[in-house]
């Protein structure tokens, strides 16, 4: 594959990739169910949590912050998980079912480019979602501004890097689009539990918290939470996310079927 892509002159490669990227963006725009859920649901949750007065009381059991503030990173990670596990695998498995990937492998453009274009489109949606939720929590609901904005950027970036390969792995393991949707959901709910969607992480028993720290979603919540409340996040959760990014990306690339 590498010799293949190297052989294309760079100007034409850029032209072809740009077209592919535009086409993927256009398709996402024309069937906006992915972004609608991936951005819409977190924003809806943020507004609901934000409108409940009790959520704004500081709580000692949450380490002196309000429930709303403790949920902000969870909501961001919920959005990322929805995009990674639902929006990302769906077009890829659909393309495989339609034979689009097979067709691409007969042209000078390798099918991996389509994967890259789809990753970029979904990453853009994910960043947009994170920006809306984080800005909205501060501007509309008075949550504290992040102590370390750069820490937030790095934490969100690594969260995308750690969660998106999980979606690729789902696309790799599923035979059909319906299968991918089902596996996606099966992975989504337990991981969301460890992110603290139902039981905030500070309230988790020690053993659950330990497990949570080593799940990609738990580590992501921890990294974003720390950047907001304390400053640049500790190395632990960042390393966990980076580890998932590398391991899952490797697995997905080994297991992905192009036809």
């Amino acid at each position: 594959m590498s010799a293949h892509s190297l052989a294309l002159p760079s100007a034409r490669r850029r032209g072809a990739f740009w077209r592919l990227l535009r086409t993927e963006a256009l398709l996402t725009w024309r069937r906006p169910i992915g972004p609608a859920v991936g951005i819409g649901l977190p924003v809806l949750l943020l507004v609901i949590f934000g409108e409940v007065p009790a959520f704004h009381h500081r709580s000692a059991s949450l380490g002196g912050i309000s429930a709303f503030t403790s949920y902000v990173p969870v909501v961001v990670i919920l959005g990322l998980a929805l995009i990674a596990l639902m929006s990302l695998p769906s077009p890829l498995t659909t393309y495989r079912e339609l034979g689009v990937l097979h067709r691409l492998s007969t042209t000078p453009v390798p099918p991996s480019w389509l994967l890259a274009a789809q990753l970029l489109v979904q990453a853009t949606v994910a960043v947009a979602m994170a920006v809306v939720v984080l800005l909205g929590s501060v501007a509309a609901f008075g949550s504290p501004a992040p102590r370390s904005p750069i820490g937030v950027v790095i934490a969100v970036g690594l969260s995308i890097a750690g969660l998106f390969p999980l979606g690729l792995l789902v696309a790799a393991l599923a035979k059909t689009n319906n299968g991918a949707m089902m596996i996606g959901r099966l992975v989504l709910f337990p991981t969301l539990f460890f992110a603290g969607l139902w039981l905030p992480r500070p309230l988790m028993p020690r053993v659950l918290l330990d497990i949570s720290n080593y799940t990609p979603l738990g580590a992501a919540v921890e990294a974003i939470q720390d950047s907001i409340l304390h400053g640049f996040p500790p190395v632990g959760p960042l390393l966990v996310l980076a580890g998932y990014a590398v391991a899952l990306a490797y697995l997905a690339s080994r297991l992905f079927r192009w036809e």
């Binding site: 398709l27 024309r30 069937r31 659909t94 393309y95 339609l98 034979g99 689009v100 097979h102 067709r103 007969t106």
Partner: peptide, 9 residues
């Protein structure tokens, strides 16, 4: 190739 489809939209 046989049975190659494309995105509807």
């Amino acid at each position: 190739l046989q049975s190659g489809a494309l995105p509807d939209k």
